[in-house]
Design a protein around this nucleic acid. Structure first.
Lengths: 186, 186
DNA sequence: GTCTATACATCGATAGAC
DNA sequence: GTCTATCGATGTATAGAC
């Protein structure tokens, strides 16, 4: 039953926006009365919390199922595409997982733990490719996050930033594999 | 008076979230009754619209006032820092201007025109630095957008991504000034 | 310009019967 | 587990007096 509720919640979020989700509509969509929802969830925020977990688990599954090329360049391309695709697929899910947009909602400890699993999976996969330390990884997350954000905000139905992935990956690899340069301020 | 209303609106948004803005609270904050607001604005969305314009004008002013170094590398650093600083300063403003988070709100034509001015200002300044065409600019906006997004989402009070700006700019400049390489897929 | 009064919808949540 | 009934708050918006 919980699964049905969450499915309906996602569906409503996709049409009315994440903040547009109401317990009335949610209950109606599954042929229930609003109070019945409280048998499954303590509050509306608890529903957001469960959706947050669900979304992160979906992403985690993608990462696990993905076949990861041994070549670092190819691995990065695959990883970036995976993330941007996942974000574009469902903008409301993207908002819930990666932007702080619902007032008073922050993931519970349990939910946050799942999000951390996603982060660690990506970081470990990144480290396995031998592509540098924590700073390099922060730059990498900024690149992927930026491509997603621009794609979703400014060309949600197109591929204006999606198609830049290969070039960005090349830029990034050239950078992290280049010999360190003296800069005037160092 | 309009200015007072908008000031109060921003203040409420900063404490209750952008979506948490209510005409009741807004009127109360400036010693008015809710209906009086309708003398100044046609609706609540019109208030968001005015805030959207205000925020974009603030950013436009920053760009105009900024002293822009002649050296492209320095100019990019300054530009990136300007944008990330501006975003971090007021997360709710960042949400309103750059994320689509309020259900049913989209900027009016007039408001959108101001946003376009910002975009064109940045694009022209970028072109003036002789740093390449439209694709290069799209990559640049993705970089800056990604640094902002990560900084705000994951280290709002720190500088974990802010301090990566110099390195990212170097990476970017190395890329756009490098001789084009043959890639295996080209 | 600002008010009182109020309409009217919607919301999250609880009590308690079944 | 699900319901009816309902609370109390909140929301945007309008009519009309002053």
């Amino acid at each position: 039953m919980i699964v049905e509720i969450l499915d309906a919640a996602w569906e409503i979020a996709r049409t009315d926006g994440l903040a547009g989700l109401s317990l009335r509509d949610l209950a109606a969509k599954i042929g229930m009365r609003p109070p019945s929802l409280y048998w499954y969830f303590d509050s509306k925020l608890a529903i957001y919390d469960a959706m947050f977990v669900q979304g992160n688990k979906q992403l985690l599954a993608r990462i696990t199922e993905q076949e990861w090329p041994a070549d670092p360049r190819e691995a990065l391309r695959v990883g970036a595409r995976l993330f941007v695709d996942f974000s574009m697929e469902d903008v409301q899910r993207y908002q819930l997982l990666f932007l702080r947009t619902i007032p008073n909602f922050e993931p519970s400890a349990d939910a946050y733990a799942v999000a951390m699993q996603v982060y660690e999976q990506m970081r470990d996969r990144f480290a396995a490719a031998g592509l540098g330390g924590p700073t390099a990884f922060d730059i990498w997350t900024a690149l992927v996050s930026g491509l997603s954000a621009q794609q979703i905000a400014n060309d949600p139905a197109g591929d204006r930033w999606l198609r830049l992935i290969d070039e960005v990956v090349d830029m990034y690899i050239d950078h992290v594999t280049a010999p360190p340069k003296r800069r005037k301020d160092s």
